[in-house]
């Protein structure tokens, strides 16, 4: 399941995109995030509970500010580089 964390508002489009089918629950991205914006959560997939990474509730609505210092527009943030499974991506289009 591909989850888009973030929003479109008057100032642009800002999403951290996580593919939980690719996530192998290693938690490396959580350790690398300088903002502590990621956490491991339980997701219900195919009648099973799986531990996957997610953006924390508190950062979802202000992701533009949380993630801007990692230069998400280049798609080379610490979380993306930490993920061997390529489960994380950014869409960053400030207007």
């Amino acid at each position: 399941m591909i989850t888009h964390y973030g929003y479109i508002d008057g100032s642009g489009e800002f999403y951290i995109i996580i593919d939980s089918d690719k996530c192998n629950s290693c938690g490396e991205c959580v350790k690398q995030c300088p903002q502590n914006a990621l956490e491991m959560v339980t997701e219900f997939i195919d009648l099973e509970d799986k531990t996957v990474v997610a953006v924390t509730e508190q950062h979802r609505k202000k992701i533009k500010y949380t993630c801007s210092q990692c230069k998400p527009e280049e798609n080379k943030t610490p979380c993306i580089l930490a993920c061997k499974q390529s489960a994380i991506q950014c869409v960053w289009k400030p207007q």
Binding site: M1, T3, I8, D9
Partner: peptide
């Protein structure tokens, strides 16, 4: 009916 992609706006 399995979710492949989703997006929520609750801002």
């Amino acid at each position: 009916g399995r979710v492949t992609s989703f997006l929520m706006n609750d801002k």
